[in-house]
Design a protein around this nucleic acid. Sequence first.
DNA 1: GGATGTAATGTAATCCATTACATGCAGATA
DNA 2: TATCTGCATGTAATGGATTACATTACATCC
Lengths: 335, 335
Amino acid sequence: MAKIEDVARAAGVSVATVSRVLNGAGGVLAQTEARVREAVKQLSYEPNLSARNLRKNESRIILILAPNFSNPYYSNVLSGICDVSRNLGYSTLICNIYDSSALDESLVQSLFQKNRADGMITLACNRDDDWLSKYAGKYPLVQCSEYAEGVDIPHISVDNRSAARESVRHLVELGHQRIGIIASENRYVSNAERLRGYQDALQEAGLDEDENLIGYASADYSFASGKAAAHTLLERNDPPSAIFCVSDILALGAISAAGKRGIQVPRDLSVLGFDDVDYTTMFHPYLTTVAVPCYELGRRSMLLLYDHIQRKPGAEKAIYLPHRFILRETTAQRA
Amino acid sequence: MAKIEDVARAAGVSVATVSRVLNGAGGVLAQTEARVREAVKQLSYEPNLSARNLRKNESRIILILAPNFSNPYYSNVLSGICDVSRNLGYSTLICNIYDSSALDESLVQSLFQKNRADGMITLACNRDDDWLSKYAGKYPLVQCSEYAEGVDIPHISVDNRSAARESVRHLVELGHQRIGIIASENRYVSNAERLRGYQDALQEAGLDEDENLIGYASADYSFASGKAAAHTLLERNDPPSAIFCVSDILALGAISAAGKRGIQVPRDLSVLGFDDVDYTTMFHPYLTTVAVPCYELGRRSMLLLYDHIQRKPGAEKAIYLPHRFILRETTAQRA
DNA sequence: GGATGTAATGTAATCCATTACATGCAGATA
DNA sequence: TATCTGCATGTAATGGATTACATTACATCC
């Protein structure tokens, strides 16, 4: 309950001096500082953040728009963001949205309320989210992993298209001719790009694209939907001999579906994942996949956001971090 | 940049009226309200939260002390907290701490700075965390899942001891005589209680406790450490025929270790998990475990915290939510 | 008509820290 | 000695909302 005035009185100095001590502004005699610190301790004084923020016109908070925590991909990104923000003296406010396109006007407004946060990182925008453009340039924003296309807001991700192409090329090299894909909804850039990369690879290899080899999973990238999509692909008369999945969890679902049908991975079916989350090496066969540097993605997002908050000139607009193909046990030469 | 004064001027009313409209205080003529809202829109006015919070002496933020997001258990709890807090008009500030006993003085202080948050939920306190007691009763606090013993702060969890006892009793009923346990560090109440429940069950069954049947996993409940602990148990001459693990991930690690040694689950070894996270039914054999209502735990924590923030009399001190034993595929009659 | 009540609106104090600017004082310089 | 410089400190304006209390306008009643 003590306020700065009380501390000042107790220490026999003015509020300005107390403030200077607390903010490390310097220009205070060592013995004065000692008296102030003593008074602070005695009164167990804690500065009122609202007052400070009001005056300083900042909040030292950054806002994270996250889809849902249960996905290990996002947990890692989040850790990266949190670690860096802590070091920079920021706290992280997490807004859990299940679908950025379903954001209602009033929630968006409340997010951007003055002094709620000094900046924002979005983790799961849709390609066509236009509510963002309203704030482009006016408010420090960084899009991580997913991003809205054609909106002038910096983003950080990996080169999904190339990564997908390389992966599928690997399947081609193993002799596969009927290569399926399990994709999620195209409203996510990452999904769209991975799908394109898949198509690129087929084209390169002179393989025909076949609508029937595309399995659709739901937007939550869930195990169950990966499983379901795999079943529809595998129950065909002309099933694929390899399936590229746009996420690891989908791939695990696919493997589960295959197992249920008595199809053995990788002997009868090659399966490819994407992301390289922890799960991938918890069970045999270990998943062949593309490692995405989630934690680093989070770290860099926060760093970039910080540049923008500080109006550092020349802060980058788009950053692509390197991915890495990891050959493990779920792909094999076509039988 | 517009402030309430500008809106007032534009609408031809006083600041008090604008504030009343914005806060839904009522007592404003419909046509006046319309003028105000129009002005707000015109100027795209957003109230300054710092100013509001300063005046109202609240922050509408609740702080969550979370160990690490990657653990699916915590992700679910988090979702529960976030969903409720959003409905109550609170935002959630997440502070990612890797170990609550390693919290340094200055971080703790900064967490409790005035008006940083209206209350706090801790997710992973150690049994002997005493820094908490300092705030007991003075600040709205709720401990979820884990809690510090002997500290007068409300907590919500499940009856870990009984749950563990029931689970192990199940193993006894299947004829197992040498039942091992893989536990984490005893600085967590949940771990200590589950260990006690295990011992209870052994005693009840008249089985001797055997130090050699206790495997120790690390504090992060990681897959790798579950695996390692299982190996030390299984490499003995007199290995257990069943292992009770204090968490699902540890159990999955144990199954993996068994597999590596050519031990088949559940034929040669029964394995029991705890928590029932998503992983449990992703791979065969599906894990027999105890379902802990994580999401609900989070929900109720926030609800309870809200009661305390509002100084609702008679808010409970300890709540135990029901758990549920789930028989699946990793336990079987002793061979 | 005048008194009274009520609903709508306005005025100004208040929340608490930061900080521009002012002051005071000691030592250095001319 | 008078003036200047620089450091330590103090005074008071400031940030932008909320809200207790004051005021006004108008309707109602006797």
